[in-house]
Design a binder for these strands. Sequence first.
DNA 1: ACGTTCGGTCTCATTTCGAGACTGAACGTT
DNA 2: AACGTTCAGTCTCGAAATGAGACCGAACGT
Lengths: 156, 156
Amino acid sequence: MRYEELADEPCSITRPLVIFGDRWTLLILKYSFAGIRRFNAFQNALGISRSRLLDRLDRLVEHDILTKQPAAVGAYEEYRLTPKGHDIYPILMAIRDWGDTYMAADGPPVHYLHRECPNAGSTGEAHVRLECDSCGNELTARDITPTPGPGLRVKH
Amino acid sequence: MRYEELADEPCSITRPLVIFGDRWTLLILKYSFAGIRRFNAFQNALGISRSRLLDRLDRLVEHDILTKQPAAVGAYEEYRLTPKGHDIYPILMAIRDWGDTYMAADGPPVHYLHRECPNAGSTGEAHVRLECDSCGNELTARDITPTPGPGLRVKH
DNA sequence: ACGTTCGGTCTCATTTCGAGACTGAACGTT
DNA sequence: AACGTTCAGTCTCGAAATGAGACCGAACGT
């Protein structure tokens, strides 16, 4: 099976992965969140080949995760996150939480601080929490029962 | 740059992605969470080629995300999630939240219900929330300031 | 006129991949 | 014992994806 055929799967884990589940795309987005906007800047930061980078940026633009616009000043293009792209941040933070737990023997390389935390001198850090939207308890995989939803019954 | 060289980056987003950031590994783990344990079962569920599947399973076992053991009954092997692997679940749920929001025009294909939710007839659903561990407020990328941590200062 | 920077294109050797046949071990049935 | 089945795992081969880096034209400053 070709990987792209998975795009039709009725699964909200699979479908996003067809867009950004390859080896480079989430890293490109990581740099987008870090403020990188220009083609050459991505290429220098990542070491990805130019044609590969262009493929990936084009795909992200096509899916409205990034926009491509001429810069306000200067003669170059800018790739910037859309609101849809902005909402990918929790995915990166979930990966980071796992990485800090299991792959950071020397401690976290980067702290992600809550800039204007009202508590205790702004020492709060951002973490992802899986919780129930009704009772608010923290959940793990064992607490969850998958159940068919409306998107599963639709024929295409 | 070869992709695997990124494993040395002092970044807790990059390092996990070198393990499971390719086109198949997170999908394999999705089926692990769904209860799939056997080689042929993964292959049938995913349509991945056998040699590719073996590569990916071997890598997950090598990184202690899955274990490989003979089944209690029957003459076959079982690949099962370790606690370390179990903690990947929030990453999949973060992807799913985004997929349900932006790629599920017909509604979510699957509901992930809180099985024993104390509220209102167990209608609670699992969602990922990015929050401050100090004040508890929900955060977005704009609220966060990345700051160097201990893992960045270590020489290798 | 000239050099620089920019995003983008092109070519080519290497690597990765999908498809599917094949292997050998374990087991059940007759 | 002979046979078929199921199992994970291996092998080969053609196709696709990738990395490296040269190359291009447009825009800009001097």
